[in-house]
Design a protein around this nucleic acid. Structure first.
Length: 224
DNA sequence: ACCCAGGGTCATA
DNA sequence: TATGACCATGGG
């Protein structure tokens, strides 16, 4: 079992192939950084379509703001986000996020912090784990942090580039050092991974209509 | 009826 | 450190 170590050209090749197939994804779907943060928590292990309903409910109720969420009744908040699943857990997590933002002095103050400080702060919030923290860092604070998720593991396992057992940090560090700090690239790359996983590289053991592996290998051979 | 979805926490060994 | 239980709705 090899460690995860695809070459930089391989990664860029893969990125370009997916970009040709799907085009730009325009992530994250959300009008404000705060909406992105809320979405990051609500979409935990949940289909995005279910989250859209929940966010629409929050907007309609005037609840899509830190102060409103902090001051809301948790049971009431949970009902608004019911469609996103785990609603009791997530209602508490939203409150935890908002308290964190408030305690830190607000979004503007956080924007002055380094990515490492910000990441540690987010991870200290109960209910925000590595992936949610990195969603927020990349898509709400526009930091060059590469998001790892189950889709990333699935796709790179099928490409034979990893064994699927690597730790979150191991994979993240590899992408970040391999690609260099490039927020725009990380943004589009992760979005394309999600798109490709849903569209072609599904839970079926092999993706029939997915020619990515072959095309990626062809590209690699052509170059070396 | 079953599986999956843009995870994370907590208890246990 | 590494599993397993738990959280829960909605679509295929």
């Amino acid at each position: 079992m090899r460690s995860f170590s695809p070459s930089r050209p391989q990664l860029l090749q893969l990125f370009n192939l997916m970009l040709e197939d799907y085009g730009r994804q325009g992530w994250w779907p959300g009008e404000t950084p705060f909406e992105v943060m809320v979405g990051a928590i609500l979409t935990q292990n949940t289909a995005w379509t279910n989250v859209e309903v929940a966010i629409a409910n929050l907007k309609r109720a005037g609840m899509l703001a830190p102060a409103a969420i902090i001051n809301s009744d948790q049971t009431e908040l949970a009902q608004l986000i019911r469609s996103s699943g785990y609603f009791n857990v997530k209602a508490e997590r939203l409150k935890n996020l908002c308290r964190f933002l408030q305690e830190c002095g607000g979004e503007g103050v956080l924007r002055e912090k380094t990515s490492q400080e910000l990441r540690q702060g987010l991870l200290s919030v109960n209910g925000i784990g590595p992936e949610t923290a990195d969603d927020i860092l990349l898509y709400a604070f526009e930091r060059p942090i590469f998001v790892i998720d189950a889709y990333t593991r699935r796709i790179f396992s099928r490409l034979g580039m990893c064994n699927g057992q690597e730790s979150y940090e191991e994979l993240r560090k590899w992408f970040e050092s391999g690609l260099g700090p490039d927020q725009k690239l990380f943004n589009e790359f992760h979005a394309l991974i999600v798109r490709h996983a849903k569209e072609a590289c599904t839970t079926e053991p092999h993706c029939e209509q997915c020619s990515l592996v072959e095309r990626c290998l062809l590209g690699a051979n052509r170059q070396g």
